[in-house]
């Protein structure tokens, strides 16, 4: 994963791509959990969603971002 990527000649940190990717994954997870009704096991769905996003983002950032 490059440290920065060129978007229309503007170099932006590669973290931005990870962020966008994590949003997609979160959307997928959210859909899955919603379909199987697993939110029954969650105390506070909005907090849980935000936390899951940051778990994904942190893990991906640490792993992919050298």
């Amino acid at each position: 994963m490059p440290r920065e990527v060129a978007l229309a000649d503007a170099l932006v940190p590669g973290l931005l791509l990870i962020y966008l990717g994590c949003l997609l994954v979160l959307w997928g997870i959210d859909t899955l959990i919603g379909r199987y009704g697993l939110y029954r096991y969650v105390w506070h769905p909005s907090l849980f969603r935000v936390a899951v996003f940051f778990v994904l983002f942190g893990a991906a950032g640490l792993l992919l971002y050298p």
């Binding site: 849980f48 899951v52 778990v55």
Partner: peptide, 15 residues
């Protein structure tokens, strides 16, 4: 329910 949410939040904070 409470435990799952708490664990996820703590992991998120650490990461």
């Amino acid at each position: 329910r409470f435990a799952i949410t708490t664990v996820v939040v703590i992991v998120a904070l650490l990461l």
